[in-house]
């Protein structure tokens, strides 16, 4: 991993279109400003990991649970 030291207000540029700036430091938190092309997806890593974890939970299902769910929906409709 490339590690760079930046002071408050300083910026890192990635390629031609992405700029990352340290905008605030408070205790153990750093606020970071990101300039990037409008429709590029930028997200906190936790969200990516959350979706990954949810996929893993979702993959371990049983036919019994599915049948229950289908029956339950059927009852609700009637």
């Amino acid at each position: 991993m490339l590690v760079l030291t930046r002071k408050m207000g300083e910026t890192i540029t990635i390629g031609d279109h992405i700029r990352i700036k340290v905008v605030e430091m408070k205790g153990n938190q750093v606020r970071i400003g990101i300039e990037a092309p409008g429709d590029m997806r930028i997200y906190r890593e936790e969200i990516y990991l959350k979706v990954q974890k949810e996929n893993q939970l979702a993959a371990s299902w049983s036919l019994t649970d599915l049948d229950n769910a289908v029956n339950f929906i059927g009852c609700e409709k009637e």
């Binding site: 969200i47 979706v51 949810e54 996929n55 939970l57 299902w61 019994t64 649970d65 599915l66 229950n68």
Partner: peptide, 18 residues
């Protein structure tokens, strides 16, 4: 939308984030 089934139907969730 990916569904996370559960033994209790009320606890079934759907992943709107992924």
């Amino acid at each position: 939308l990916v569904v996370t089934l559960a033994p209790e139907p009320a606890k079934i969730t759907v992943n709107l984030q992924g």
